[in-house]
Amino acid sequence: MRLYQGVDLVEVARLKEAYERHEAFGEDVFTEAERAYCLKRSNPYPHFAARFAAKEACLKAFGLGISEPGGLGGRGRLREIEVESAVSGKPTLKLSGSMERMSARKKIAQSTISMSHTLDLAIAQVILLGEDAPEEAD
């Protein structure tokens, strides 16, 4: 069984500051669907922060570390990890581009994501299971 996990904690105020200061931040980091979901909220920033934490947690689970080492590139991965929200509110991960290819190489069969936030902090955990993971017990 191969199990990979990552967790990340984000300060909502830090996220808000970066989002507001840099015009390209929203589009570079979040997909259109994520922006639409968050911007529907009266205070979108805890939701953006939770999604940012989810993206970073996902990168950690894949063993890729932080998204933008600076000068080495890597920011593009953030948009390749999308947090989809089901009608029930349950979030799921949708990967594309290099992240989808990495998932195939690691033979990831299942992923789970959990997010939570207050007005100040947002946290997310991502667990990935390799395809040789045992059947779920009854």
Binding site: E11, A18, H22, F25, V29, S67, G71, L72
Partner: peptide
């Protein structure tokens, strides 16, 4: 998040686009 912020600041200061992909 700081790394992203630093890179965005450098893009603004120099009018350039830093690499998105690793």
């Amino acid at each position: 998040l700081d790394f992203l912020d630093v890179n965005f600041r450098l893009e603004q200061v120099f009018g350039i686009k830093m690499a998105r992909n690793f």
